[in-house]
């Protein structure tokens, strides 16, 4: 049969339109009405917007410009917050005088010591309670109990016990690190797929070999998560710890700046804290890329 009504208005998907659509197309279903067709517009045909990174940097830059403008017009007084320009100058001065690099070195050292100490303690305890029932009963309850105490609140005790030197600062950092690592490594060990452990056992692995080849690699993702959390906590603990009568380090710079209303120096120190934290995160990400490349849902790329 032939279609009695006019052929539908077919919008071209491609540029070259066929010269004429034959109107007498034989159809299997006599009464079927051909639907109106619309083109599927390829994504590439849409107008390209600004690149994403440019759009994303615009916001912060605008904020910075507004800040500078407010400072320049005197709305934002320097005692409240120094202008970005002043801060940049101060940062350059602090670097060239060697004050900032030496303070950074001192602070970094505290974090590294705290991290090593806390990491060793946290991982040892997690292995103890993760790998043995007896260890779990002995260790886990105590750790969970101590975890309820906000570790920053222990500063007064640390000062009484350890004085006001490096020891209380490093201990504070170690404590913050230890809890995070403990919790995540322990959860990682206990979260290892039971089926894989069974498969390992069916392959004749001894208990030792099971721990080495199945349990510990399986707990590694948890351990890396713990490391990231504990690094974040380490910086926080550093900031708190350096408020304790510090005679050097970034915290000391800040305390000094506070006494002289130097908001520019304070902001420089804050930026340095942020920068150190960011660097640590980049290091951990690189470590994850190296150690966790086997993960099916690995997204550290």
């Amino acid at each position: 049969m032939s279609i009695s009504k006019a052929p539908p208005d077919i919008s071209p998907v491609s540029a070259d339109v066929p010269p004429d659509v034959p109107s007498a197309v034989p159809s299997a279903v006599p009464t079927a009405i051909a639907p109106e067709l619309r083109p599927v517009v390829p994504v590439s045909a849409r107008r390209r917007p600004l690149p994403r990174w440019l759009r994303r940097t615009t916001g912060p830059l605008l904020l910075l410009a507004a800040w500078q403008l407010l400072s320049a017009t005197g709305v934002l007084r320097p005692e409240v917050l120094a202008s970005p320009g002043t801060i940049a100058g101060t940062a350059a001065d602090l670097v060239s005088s060697g004050q900032l690099p030496s303070a950074m070195a001192v602070s970094l050292q505290r974090v590294v010591f705290g991290l090593l100490l806390g990491g060793a303690a946290g991982i040892t305890l997690a292995l103890l309670s993760g790998l043995s029932r007896l260890g779990e009963d002995l260790v886990d309850a105590s750790v969970q109990m101590l975890r309820a105490v906000p570790f920053v609140g222990l500063i007064p005790l640390f000062i009484i016990w350890l004085g006001i030197g490096e020891a209380p600062k490093v201990t504070l950092i170690a404590l913050g690190v230890a809890f995070h690592l403990y919790l995540n490594v322990y959860a990682g060990i206990r979260g290892v797929d039971e089926q894989l452990i069974e498969a390992g056992a069916s392959l004749g692995l001894s208990r030792r070999a099971l721990v080495r080849h199945v349990v510990l690699p399986g707990a590694l993702p948890g351990a890396m998560t713990g490391l990231r959390y504990s690094l974040a906590t380490a910086w926080l603990a550093l900031v708190f710890g350096e408020q304790i009568n510090a005679s050097d380090g970034i915290g000391f710079l800040m305390t000094q700046a506070r006494d002289f209303l130097r908001t520019d120096v304070i902001v420089v120190c804050l930026v340095v804290y942020a920068f150190l934290g960011l660097t640590a995160d980049i290091v951990v990400r690189a470590l994850e890329r190296l150690l966790l490349q086997w993960r099916p849902n690995f997204t550290g790329r």
């Binding site: 089926q195 498969a199 069916s202 392959l203 080849h213 199945v214 399986g218 086997w294 993960r295």
Partner: peptide, 23 residues
Amino acid sequence: RAVAFQAPRLMPWKRVWRNVLLG
């Protein structure tokens, strides 16, 4: 004796040949 399970149960952190040699 050896078992093959419904799920392959390969250790995801070991390359295929290390999985084969495991144990």
